[in-house]
């Protein structure tokens, strides 16, 4: 199923700038990479209470994001899911397996690692951008779901 979405360059530029600002502030305060995979994995497999608590609090802040947007704009951010539940489950599981092996996702490799010009992150980002595009093409235009 395809849903048209409006092109919103200014919201996207502002959103991206805030994502970057959060990454810079986390590095400035804790010296850590702002990666969703790393933060989540560290919560699931804690090494110490201080290590667990900073991740849990950052995650709590992330989850408060839509609520803050609701307070400011009067609207929750749009979440339109054009795929079936089974695709969410299989896709989610595959994402979990993939990011555990690659040690990072769009935030950790795609933003923080690329900004450090890390060769591993550049290769990781190019790889997942290509396989995502191929998957979307196959699902929408070849299989035609």
């Amino acid at each position: 199923m395809m849903l048209e979405t409006a092109f919103t360059p200014f919201y996207s530029l502002a959103g991206g700038a805030l994502i970057g600002l959060a990454a810079v502030l986390l590095m400035l305060t804790t010296g850590r990479i702002m990666g969703a995979t790393g933060i989540l994995a560290g919560i699931l497999q804690p090494t110490s209470l201080p290590d667990w608590s900073w991740r849990a609090v950052v995650l709590l802040g992330m989850i408060s994001g839509p609520g803050a947007v609701l307070l400011i704009t009067g609207q929750l951010p749009a979440v339109q899911v054009p795929v079936s539940t089974i695709m969410l489950v299989i896709g989610g599981f595959i994402v979990g397996v993939g990011v555990t092996f690659s040690s990072g996702c769009t935030s950790g490799h795609g933003v923080c690692g690329m900004a450090r010009l890390s060769p591993r992150s550049i290769v990781a980002t190019l790889t997942f951008m290509i396989t995502t595009a191929i998957t979307v093409y196959l699902i929408r235009h070849v299989i035609g779901v």
Partner: peptide, 28 residues
């Protein structure tokens, strides 16, 4: 690194959520 990233992209293309997008979206 490369196999994991390739796999991640397949899942992202199926579901449309990546971890950094989905965790904040929990708040909706």
């Amino acid at each position: 690194l490369i196999g994991g990233s390739a796999f991640f992209g397949i899942g992202w293309g199926m579901a449309g959520f990546c971890p950094g997008g989905a965790l904040p979206a929990l708040g909706t």
